[in-house]
């Protein structure tokens, strides 16, 4: 991997290069870590703004935050029932964090941290641990191993592949969408003259829309994977 300094170029012109820091034998992509922290700071600032002076009739940031939470709670209630409210904090934070990370590509010198496979793989790994852990917690370890053989015994490889494929497609879908948007921004930057910024602006607006849609799809799929462990009265 090519190494460069942190925030050294004013318009990123290289695809796939990260600022790598070696600690011992392990290498970290430092610019991805720094932009992830920026994404976290954005979410924290928004949360603090919304909960600063809680009022019974919400206005401003609190209003927006409450309507957003009601929207996510509607998604959770639709798939998981009323007992599903326990996962609402995690799911809402996932949505906000992924959305604010995807928006980082709009800031001039930064790249979105979700355009690095490490960030999306980390998010998908935690979803994997959370979904399987929720199933073990709710139904017990024996039932968890038995559910791989559930409809018929020879479904075992299909169930294994499905369990592996779900977090992988989550990670790759988010990574691919955001990386394609970032790379196309770089390419448009290279080939267009300075007096014709219209395609870049149009693509930037579409990329913001894709940021929202991909965060929403990630969240909705997490909820739907969790619905397997909350379905008690179906069978």
């Amino acid at each position: 991997m090519v190494e460069k300094g942190l925030f050294t170029n004013y318009s990123p012109n290289e695809i796939g290069v990260h600022d790598i820091v070696h600690i011992g034998n392990v290498s970290f992509n430092m610019d991805t870590i720094v932009t992830t922290w920026f994404g976290m700071v954005l979410v924290i600032i928004f949360a603090i703004m919304a909960t600063r002076k809680l009022q019974l009739k919400p206005r401003g940031a609190q209003n927006f935050f409450e309507s957003f939470l009601e929207f996510v709670a509607g998604l959770v209630d639709g798939s998981l029932g009323i007992k599903g409210r326990v996962v609402l904090p995690y799911v809402a934070t996932l949505f906000l964090f992924i959305f604010s990370c995807n928006l980082m590509s709009a800031i001039p010198m930064l790249e979105a941290p979700t355009s690095d496979i490490n960030t999306t793989a980390g998010l998908a790994l935690f979803v994997f641990i959370f979904v399987n852990g929720m199933m073990i917690f709710k139904h017990g370890l024996g039932n968890y191993f038995k559910h791989y053989f559930k409809p018929f015994v020879f479904f075992f490889p299909i169930n294994i592949i499905e369990t592996m494929a779900k977090p992988m497609t989550l990670a790759l879908r988010l990574f691919g969408n955001i990386l394609a948007g970032d790379v196309l921004l770089i390419v448009l930057n290279l080939i267009l003259p300075a007096w014709f910024p219209v395609p870049t602006i149009v693509w930037m607006m579409f990329s913001l829309f894709v940021a929202g849609v991909q965060a929403f799809v990630f969240t909705l799929l997490t909820i739907s994977y969790l619905s397997e462990s909350f379905a008690e009265e179906a069978h």
Partner: peptide, 19 residues
């Protein structure tokens, strides 16, 4: 919108492979 996000997953992975 959800379905479009899901359907476009593998074509976008193909674009990443091309990049």
């Amino acid at each position: 919108l959800i379905s479009v996000g899901l359907i476009e997953a593998v074509p976008i992975i193909a674009v990443v492979i091309a990049f």
